[in-house]
């Protein structure tokens, strides 16, 4: 299976009802003990400014957590409905509004993946889509 099989696939409930589209796949990256690959780089602090860039932990396995389902399809998402970014006004606000109702379905609750379609298991859970 490749990620392309899941992304933009239609999502159907156990009874075949249309629920939306797969907009993303959530993963849990194992972070191993942080090692520093370039301790002699004098510009390291200046180079690595944001927390995301500065985070030098080695990553290990990447477990599939679940699929993110939006009731709306289309339009590049930019992830604004899952993050707290508010600038540049009004772009994040508009995207968030459009993709209101996006939810996370745990991978265990995915019953079948066919061409362009994902079917959820009976009693599937809908969880909060926000990124921690």
């Amino acid at each position: 299976m490749i990620l392309g099989d899941l992304l933009d696939a239609r999502v159907r409930g156990p009874g075949g009802e249309h629920l939306g589209t797969v907009v993303d796949v959530r993963l849990a990256l194992e972070t191993l003990r942080g090692d520093d690959p370039s301790p002699d780089d004098p510009d390291r602090e200046a180079r690595a400014l944001s927390a995301q860039v500065r985070r030098r932990d080695r990553v290990g396995r990447a477990r599939v957590v679940g699929i993110l389902v939006s009731p709306r399809s289309g339009a590049p998402l930019l992830g604004y409905e899952r993050t707290g970014v508010t600038a540049p006004w009004p772009v994040p606000q508009l995207v968030r509004r459009r993709h209101r109702g996006t939810f996370l379905v745990p991978w265990e609750d995915v019953a079948a993946v066919g061409p362009g379609e994902v079917r959820l298991a009976a009693g599937y859970r809908q969880e909060d889509a926000a990124l921690p």
């Binding site: 400014l49 944001s50 927390a51 995301q52 860039v53 500065r54 930019l78 970014v85 600038a87 540049p88 772009v91």
Partner: peptide, 16 residues
């Protein structure tokens, strides 16, 4: 560019 210049994951404290 405008969007990424506002993304704290890329820009940290140097966002627009």
């Amino acid at each position: 560019i405008l969007l990424v210049a506002n993304d704290p994951e890329y820009m940290g404290e140097h966002v627009n």
